[in-house]
Design a protein around this nucleic acid. Sequence first.
DNA 1: CCTAGTGTGCTAGGCAACTAATACAGTATA
DNA 2: TATACTGTATTAGTTGCCTAGCACACTAGG
Lengths: 133, 133
Amino acid sequence: MILLDLNSGEERPIYARIADQLKFAVAGGALRPGDLAPSVRELAKQLLVNPNTVARAYRDLQSEGLFEPVRGMGIQVAEGAVERCRQSRREMIRARIRRAIEEARESRMEPSEIEAILRDEWAKANQSTNGKA
Amino acid sequence: MILLDLNSGEERPIYARIADQLKFAVAGGALRPGDLAPSVRELAKQLLVNPNTVARAYRDLQSEGLFEPVRGMGIQVAEGAVERCRQSRREMIRARIRRAIEEARESRMEPSEIEAILRDEWAKANQSTNGKA
DNA sequence: CCTAGTGTGCTAGGCAACTAATACAGTATA
DNA sequence: TATACTGTATTAGTTGCCTAGCACACTAGG
């Protein structure tokens, strides 16, 4: 099963993207509490990255209490993880939106123009990925 | 005169932020074609960074044709720079908004929740900085 | 002419982040 | 017990950003 997708041609660290994607998988229900997440080595092979990079992502997720290691078995989704991942996701998205708007205002862009972009992009996102799988 | 503001506690390279801020200054009318931008050394002193870092920003801006050096004098805002800086700014903001929405959708966040965040943050931005200078 | 200001180019070094390779410790299963 | 899987820790190497110092070419102004 393919849970993650690093495609995003972003400049963020790989381990951070992996961690985010795993959070999203939990928030979206693809991974549920008690489930075993893909092993470090397997996920590394799947994503064509070094196992340490994956391990780093899991380490961060553990320090947030979202995943729990079970030696010899794998890494398990923690109990209250769903709600916390949803909240994390919400704050992540919100922070990005907020920052973009903030910068637009600081650059003295016309409020009407900012609003137009917001409406336009929201509309585009809804029409393009509408009849999707 | 203080044109720039690096405060943004972001993780982007300093030179990139300086370049963006200069573009914004042109787009917003604080710097007009023919005006001399702050000298490399002066701006470096003002921002408490190394002159090379500022020079790097100007170098990038020149390669985009937005600023033109005048030897012995300083760096001048190019002729058609205003519209191009506005366009650059527009695309920059648009890309950020688009990316945030895109990621929200990829994470399977409910469209209604995404829209709520967009409306909420836009409303907040407008009420907080309303009666501003 | 001469001084002080401009931008430009170069080399060097430090520092932090990221990735990688390897070895180690524990557990399931045959 | 032996094998093969798990996660973990340590160490190294690469890269990019930033700083630093210096030399060079040019120009305005005294």
